Computed example of a mutant assay.
Amino acid sequence: MSKKKGEKKEKAGRKKAPGGAHDLAPALAGAARSMRTVHSRNLLEAGLYSGQDGVILELAEGEALTPGELAHRLGVKAPTMTRTIGRMEAQGFVQRKPDGGDGRQVKVHLTPLGLHSLEKINLATAATNSKALEDFSDKEIRTLLKLLKALNRNLIGEAQSEDEEEVVTD
């Protein structure tokens, strides 16, 4: 079966555009993985392990928190947080102290070394951001942030509805 010249051109013009919506999840996951890898390397150069920056930043808000509160705020499981706190305590970044109001609870406090590490975290974060946004214009950065925030809002709604479904019992 032969095709007319006009039909061939029309079909060629309908080529699938690169970068369709089906490419979003793998592209975003790859970018997030690369960002975490570079950020982890920058933190390690500052004497910190990945994840410790989040603990320090939460505690730097000024309030001592229980390990459970930290785990919840950072979106990790309690045993993971307990191991992280143990490592950070051994490094001198945090200290566990009994809660004055409830002796059964402990609260995690920043030490002076932990507080001093804020500058290192900020430098590591700035280096990571600088590398990630290399060759981006200010307008592109604003657009990227706007789109990522919108994407996150969409996904948070989905994640919350899934959490609500899990809570329902018969």
Rank of each mutant, 00 (worst) to 15 (best):
Pro18Ile: 04
His22Arg: 07
Asp23Lys: 11
Asp23Trp: 05
Pro26Thr: 12
Pro26Ser: 06
Ala29Asn: 09
Ala29Val: 15
Ala29Tyr: 05
Ala31Val: 14
Ala32Cys: 10
Thr37Lys: 00
Val38Ser: 00
Val38His: 00
His39Val: 02
Arg41Ser: 12
Leu44Phe: 00
Leu44His: 06
Ala46Asn: 09
Leu48Met: 13
Ser50Lys: 01
Gly54Thr: 05
Gly54Leu: 06
Val55Phe: 00
Val55Thr: 09
Ile56Phe: 02
Leu57Asp: 04
Leu57Lys: 05
Leu59Asp: 05
Glu61Tyr: 12
Glu63Phe: 06
Glu63Cys: 03
Ala64Cys: 03
Leu65Ser: 12
Pro67Val: 09
Glu69Gly: 12
Leu70Asn: 03
His72Met: 06
Arg73Gly: 04
Leu74Val: 08
Leu74Arg: 06
Leu74Ala: 01
Leu74Glu: 03
Leu74Thr: 08
Lys77Cys: 05
Ala78Trp: 05
Pro79Asp: 11
Met81Phe: 04
Arg83Phe: 13
Gln91Ile: 02
Val94His: 00
Arg96Ile: 12
Lys97Tyr: 03
Pro98Met: 04
Asp99Trp: 09
Asp99Gly: 00
Val106Gln: 05
Val106Ser: 03
Val108Gly: 02
His109Arg: 06
Leu110His: 04
Thr111Leu: 02
Leu113Lys: 15
Leu113Met: 12
His116Glu: 14
His116Thr: 12
Ser117Thr: 08
Ser117Asp: 02
Lys120Ser: 11
Ala124Asn: 01
Thr125Gln: 07
Ala127Gly: 01
Ser130Phe: 01
Lys131Gln: 03
Lys131Ala: 08
Ala132Gln: 10
Glu134His: 12
Asp135Val: 12
Phe136Gly: 13
Asp138Lys: 14
Glu140His: 14
Ile141Pro: 01
Arg142Glu: 13
Arg142Cys: 10
Arg142Thr: 15
Leu145Ile: 12
Lys146Phe: 12
Lys146Thr: 15
Lys146Arg: 14
Leu147Pro: 03
Lys149Cys: 09
Lys149Trp: 05
Leu151Gly: 07
Asn152Ser: 14
Arg153Gly: 04
Asn154Leu: 15
Asn154His: 15
Leu155Phe: 11
